[in-house]
């Protein structure tokens, strides 16, 4: 057998093995989603989405839980978006190439790798105790915001970097200030990218359990009347239902899982479609 035909055989074998690995990862992702849909879809109807739980959380729906997660996520966005976007603008448009900015980037990358339970501890120490927010939507949202910040900063900076330098110079050469250039030219173009990245970051925050475990959630709480109330939330509800209740009610467990996964999937899909539509509009 010639050398080259052996090499070709080795190539075919390698390609098959690598392809199988790739397929395995892919099928894990799709399989998990499919399994949740398969187990949970049957329990979810209009009543499940719009009613409060009854009979020690074995019947009824999860309306207050959904509302709780929406509250938490909206407050997280309120805290994280302004700071994160401005920090991204700083890094892309203002920061000089110095040691300081190198350390800033290092800190951001490192923040993304801090375990979620550590954010939970931090939230307890700072927001719950020191700032006196107790277990509340605000304390939980601030904790989630800290965790989401690196995602928002990074996607903002990346979106801004996509924009040709010439466009900035065109505006500056017309006598526009840097701030006006950012507001009128840079942000409108980078907006879709920033929003996409931020929403993906926020959708992850919505699915997090560990950071809100001790900062925001309760096993049972009525719909919050203000941001200083504690709340129920989908991931925590799911965790409690699956592990702590004596008789886990399958409708509650799988229905909640379905709502959580479907909500996040929908956000992802909507954002992806919107973004590709935006991309088609602007092309260099």
């Amino acid at each position: 057998m010639s050398r080259s035909s052996r090499a070709r055989k080795a190539e075919a074998l390698a390609k098959t093995l690598l392809g199988m690995a790739a397929l395995l990862a892919l099928s894990a992702a799709l399989g998990f989603i499919g399994y949740i849909f398969y187990r949970g879809a049957g329990y979810v109807d209009w009543a499940f989405l719009t009613q409060a739980p009854r009979k020690f959380m074995t019947e009824g729906g999860i309306y207050p839980v959904i509302v709780g997660t929406v509250y938490l996520t909206v407050w997280t966005a309120l805290f994280a978006l302004p700071v994160g976007i401005m920090a991204g603008i700083y890094l892309s448009e203002y920061a000089p190439r110095t040691v300081t900015t190198r350390i800033m980037r290092l800190a951001i990358a490192n923040m993304a790798g801090v375990p979620s339970i550590v954010y939970g501890l931090f939230g307890v120490a700072l927001f719950v105790i020191q700032m006196g927010f107790n277990r509340s939507i605000v304390a939980g949202a601030l904790t989630l915001a800290c965790m989401t910040l690196p995602v928002i900063i990074t996607s903002t900076e990346e979106a801004l970097r996509q924009i040709p330098t010439d466009l900035r110079h065109a505006s500056l050469a017309l006598g526009a200030t840097k701030l006006r250039t950012i507001r009128k030219v840079i942000l409108p173009v980078a907006g879709p990218g920033i929003i996409t990245g931020s929403i993906l970051g926020l959708s992850r925050a919505a699915g997090e359990t560990a950071p809100i475990l001790f900062t925001a959630v309760a096993f049972f709480a009525p719909i919050a009347s203000g941001p200083l109330d504690e709340t129920m939330a989908l991931p925590y509800h799911l965790y409690i239902m699956a592990t702590q209740s004596t008789k886990p009610a399958p409708n509650m467990v799988w229905g909640t899982a379905f709502v959580l996964v479907a909500g996040i999937s929908m956000l992802n899909v909507v954002v992806a479609i919107w973004r590709s539509a935006q991309r088609r509009k602007i092309r260099w």
Binding site: A22, A25, L26, A28, A29, L30, F32, I33, Y35, I36, L200, S203, R204, G207, E208, T209, P235, Y236, L238, Y239, A242, V253, A257, L260, V261, I264, S265, N268, A272
Partner: peptide, 19 residues
């Protein structure tokens, strides 16, 4: 593939725990 994998990163860990 990359978008599916990115999507996979977004599955909440509590859901994976349940599975």
């Amino acid at each position: 593939y990359k978008s599916v994998i990115e999507f996979m990163a977004g599955i909440p860990s509590v859901v994976l725990g349940l599975i």
